[in-house]
């Protein structure tokens, strides 16, 4: 199968969906001539013109708000937040407007939009350009939240996001854009809310998402050398969340580690741990372990940042704790 980078896979999904649905409108900073800071929208301005690939002022609240208005009137906007950290600037429009408009209107309006953004650290971008915010997006009812880890998933999930009639927060990771992986030529989509077992195993269930999946697979490989069989699950979406796949795995392995790059406090790991003890307490043979970023702002200096963000070693330590 041919290989594409994560960025190419995303671009292909956007292109195919824009060809399919003339109502899709892109809005964002530097997404036209420049092609976006991570080059995901490169070439789209030339292909679709400035009406559909709309460069905006540095004005997140304004253009996300305009996207809400476009969505309520028959368009399917894709506002791009250059860094997930900028979601705070547009927070009212995301959390109070897009997420709640349908409910507040008793179902009278739809808000079909895909807020594309990227998050995560590891590049020394410091505290205002390195956050992982899926917990926040997940907490507020009314948003679906998607975090692809591979080029294949990036394309298939983004295409599904465009087929939804709901506000979707589509969260990429800045260190995944250059990663390569198989992406078939033929059309495919991946339903939102289906986790994927990336590696089957019997001894420990390891749930992760976004770039942490790559760390998880590395850790699973290393544990295999030591004779421990890890079942690695990529959550892929936090809303809707595929709890069933996790429970099924835990009922088999009786041990669970959850790893993510967002802060540990109240993170997805905390939520999954709570859900698993509610639904499968009798199946657990060890306390559930959570791996996440330390609860501090993401520091700039490399040795500091690499301690704050969870890596393969942190996951290995957690696995070793649950298999004792």
């Amino acid at each position: 199968m041919r290989e594409l980078t994560y960025a190419q896979a995303l671009r292909e999904a956007i292109t195919e969906e824009m060809d399919r649905n003339p109502n899709i409108i892109l809005l964002g900073e530097d997404i036209g001539v420049y092609g976006g800071v991570f080059k995901v929208t490169e070439g789209l301005l030339a292909r679709y013109g400035p009406e559909r690939v709309r460069e905006t002022p540095i004005s997140e609240a304004g253009f996300v708000g305009a996207a809400v208005g476009l969505a309520m009137t028959g368009k399917h906007p894709m506002p791009e937040l250059m860094f997930a950290d900028f979601a705070w600037v547009a927070a009212d429009q995301i959390f109070n407007q897009a997420a709640k408009m349908r409910y507040m209107s008793g179902g009278r309006v739809k808000v079909p939009m895909v807020i594309r953004t990227q998050q995560g650290g590891g590049r020394g971008n410091a505290a205002q350009h390195s956050q992982s915010l899926e917990t926040i997006f997940t907490h507020i009812p009314g948003l679906k939240v998607v975090l692809p880890a591979t080029p294949y998933d990036a394309k298939g999930l983004l295409k599904s996001a465009f087929r939804e009639e709901n506000p979707i927060v589509f969260v990429e990771h800045k260190l995944l854009y250059a990663t390569r992986g198989p992406v078939p030529e033929e059309e495919y989509t991946i339903p939102l809310g289906q986790a994927e077992i990336k590696r089957a195993g019997d001894d420990v269930t390891l749930v992760s998402l976004s770039r942490t999946v790559l760390h998880a697979l590395e850790a699973a490989e290393e544990m295999a050398q030591e004779g421990v069989s890890v079942e690695a699950i990529d959550l892929r979406c936090t809303v809707p969340m595929d709890l069933e796949t996790i429970l099924e795995s835990v009922r088999k392995t009786n041990r669970l580690v959850v790893a993510h790059e967002s802060h540990r406090r109240l993170g997805i790991g905390a939520e999954i741990a709570a859900l698993v003890q509610e639904h499968a307490f009798d199946h657990l043979d060890a306390p559930i372990e959570r791996v996440g970023a330390m609860d501090v702002p993401i520091p700039y200096s490399q040795p500091l940042e690499s301690q704050v963000l969870p890596g393969v070693d942190h996951i290995l330590e957690a696995i070793r704790r649950v298999i004792v």
């Binding site: 996300v64 708000g65 305009a66 809400v68 208005g69 476009l70 009137t73 028959g74 009212d92 407007q97």
Partner: peptide
């Protein structure tokens, strides 16, 4: 809208539509 000023960008989006 219960958030002061929030309806303005939404209306701009509708106008753009």
């Amino acid at each position: 809208n219960a958030i002061v000023g929030a309806g303005a960008p939404i209306a701009v989006g509708a106008a753009l539509s």
